[in-house]
Amino acid sequence: MLEFFGREEPRKTEFEELTLPYLDSLYGFALVLTGNSDDAHDLVQDAYLRAYRFYHRYQPITHYKAWLFTLTKNLFINRYHQRAREVSLTSLEIDDDAPYESPRDLLVAASGRHEKGLFRQDFDWAMAAMPEKLRLAVLLKDVEGFDYKEIAEIMGCPLGTVMSRLSRGRQLLKKSLKDYWVGAPPLRPAEHARTERV
């Protein structure tokens, strides 16, 4: 009996050591999914509770970070039924073959902002203006470092969709930043959203 209870605390410590380092990442992910900090807070907390319960049942989990992200996404879908339907309408996404935007001009335009230390806020702004799915793709790849297969699993969409979203997301990011940096009137978020095809 003692042993039965005695195991609990070490397992909790172990779980926390494995998963809590991803709290910031998961919170950022939840923020993009839910769009507000209240729901993100609830989602992350529920995700950790659920992860902890699963952790007890199925032990060897190989990639904790991807597992936590997938779990959070599934929880989000279960909880926000309405929005979930929107998220899963992904099957027939066609790459629109937009001309490739070279980053060269962009990098030239950027140098001034970089020196003034304004880079971060420019990127924040450009990311916030992107449609949610493209932003998620860029976040999961370029910030969180997942591979395409993991992103497909987390976002619940085919590999081809991941590639298309990623390339469109990066293109859009480049275009927003370039327009912004060379002084052209930037696209407003609403216009971006309208140009996205799902």
Binding site: L23, Y27, L107, V138, V143, R170
Partner: peptide, 20 residues
Amino acid sequence: VFQDLVRQNVAPPPAPEFAR
């Protein structure tokens, strides 16, 4: 170079202490 810039500049803010 651009992707490196994204990696360096797009990290989301840390979770609030309250959430932790």
